[in-house]
Computed example of a mutant assay.
Amino acid sequence: MLLTLLAGLTATPLGQLLVALVILLGVVFVGRLVLSLAWRLLFVAVVVVGILYLLTIFGL
């Protein structure tokens, strides 16, 4: 049923554009979640390395 609907949807250029935009929306959404996590990990890494650097400067 779904495959038949998708085949009918991609029969026209406008339907193909709609399918491509929906796929692009999914890719951007997943990418946004991954980048959000990456920014948090990067921030934590900078803070940890900065603290370790200050500890080595002061000889603690």
Rank of each mutant, 00 (worst) to 15 (best):
T10H: 06
A38G: 00
F43W: 07
I51P: 03
W39N: 10
L14S: 08
Q16V: 03
G31T: 04
L14C: 08
L33G: 07
L55H: 00
V19E: 09
L41P: 03
F29Y: 14
L2S: 13
M1W: 03
L60K: 04
I23P: 04
V27N: 01
V30Y: 05
L21P: 02
T4A: 14
L60N: 09
F58M: 11
I57R: 03
T56F: 09
I51M: 13
R32T: 11
W39H: 07
P13F: 09
L41G: 11
V49Q: 05
A45S: 12
V47C: 04
G31D: 08
G8H: 11
V22E: 08
V49N: 04
F29N: 11
L37C: 00
T12M: 04
L35R: 04
A20F: 11
Y53P: 00
A7C: 06
V34D: 05
V46Q: 06
Y53L: 14
F43E: 10
L18A: 12
L3S: 14
T56R: 01
M1R: 02
Y53G: 10
L33S: 05
I57C: 05
V22R: 02
V28K: 06
L42M: 05
T56V: 15
V30T: 02
L14R: 12
V28G: 06
G59P: 08
L42S: 12
L9Q: 04
S36W: 00
L18V: 13
L55P: 00
F43N: 08
L14I: 15
L42P: 00
T10E: 11
L41M: 14
Y53C: 07
L55M: 14
L41V: 14
A7D: 11
V48E: 15
I23R: 02
